[in-house]
Nucleic acid binder design. Structure first.
Lengths: 181, 181
DNA sequence: AAGACAAGAACGAACATTCTATCTGGAGTG
DNA sequence: CACTCCAGATAGAATGTTCGTTCTTGTCTT
């Protein structure tokens, strides 16, 4: 439960504003125990990041691989993102809103992580197959995910009031419009 | 020059990881002088924020008010965002990537700031006038700005290699596609 | 009885802020 | 014109607090 408590606090206050005593208090685990599991505060943050990303990747693979065409795949991705945002907002916020370079040395930015690389590949293949408009595949991927991720950011910060599960279809329609043929 | 040095450091390392001694060293202004200008570190961050936002708003008004129809206005907004991103990346990063709630009490989120409220209004009017597709005006505004802002974020983090001034037109086309009739 | 592990006190470093000594430049004086 | 003086600004040392990490002590388990 240390990982979960730490992530909650990191998301709430930011890595540098969260002290070990605060994590001790929130998790109920003592300083000594934390330092027997993790070599440092940075190591703790790194494991939080990896666990969160791994969990997302697992769900991503499960969903996307069962889809056939480009639209289905991108839609499956978007719906997964919306679901995680609503079910486990801390996880989503730790992935999209946190500037990990600030405290994790040699952190792989989210946009280079597997799911986002695959989105780029899906878009590239979609263009090749003529399912998407021609153009720079990278910019097309940025545009599609931009609509989705921006909506997530605004939902997480409370600006968007409605559940993304409700307005998700309209967002997916908008995102799809950026790249469809 | 304290404001500029502080902003550079805040953007680089994050507010809580920047110490007053570090700002002293980078700006060449002493601790005493800083505390005679600003009542606290938070006050300094707040003035950095306000100055940066005010400057952007002034340029925004200048550009957008000289445009006539919905497309021209949104395009002017996007081009301004791209220009600032390339000319003064610290300013743009301090506006879009920094989580100000972490250290500025009662900070107005960027998405509630004047420029973004106006974008919402421009979109709402565009829908009313039939220049944009019908639908939730708020989601349409999120979608349009999502494409733009996401591209900025990826450009600032170095993921996008090309200048946004070069690829801006393609991004604007993509963003426009999310809302056009 | 002993080994492993957890609890939390202890430690040095570094922080935000305050305080005081020093400097600076321009008005006042002869 | 030379000199004095003083108010406001600046520099940087001092202060009390809090941090990340380590260390000692106590407590289970077998």
């Amino acid at each position: 439960m240390v990982l979960r408590a730490a992530r909650k606090l990191f998301v709430e206050k930011g890595y540098h504003a969260v002290s070990i005593p605060a994590i001790v208090k929130d998790s109920g685990v003592s300083t000594g125990a934390i330092y027997s599991y993790f070599s440092s505060k940075e190591d703790l943050a790194k494991q939080v990041y990896e666990q969160t990303l791994d969990h997302f990747e697992a769900r991503f693979i499960e969903r996307v691989s069962s889809s056939s065409n480009t639209y289905e795949k991108l839609r499956a991705f978007a719906r997964l993102v919306f679901e995680v945002t609503e079910d486990d907002p801390d996880a989503m916020e730790y992935m999209v809103s946190i500037r990990h370079e600030e405290f994790i040395t040699d952190a792989v930015p989210l946009c280079y992580s597997e799911p986002f690389r695959w989105i780029q590949q899906i878009v590239a293949e979609g263009i090749e197959k003529g399912e998407l408009k021609t153009g720079d595949y990278f910019l097309s991927a940025v545009s599609f995910t931009g609509v989705i991720i921006r909506a997530v950011e605004l939902r997480l910060s409370g600006v968007v009031k409605e559940s993304l599960l409700e307005v998700g279809d309209e967002l997916i329609t908008n995102a799809w419009a950026t790249i469809k043929v």
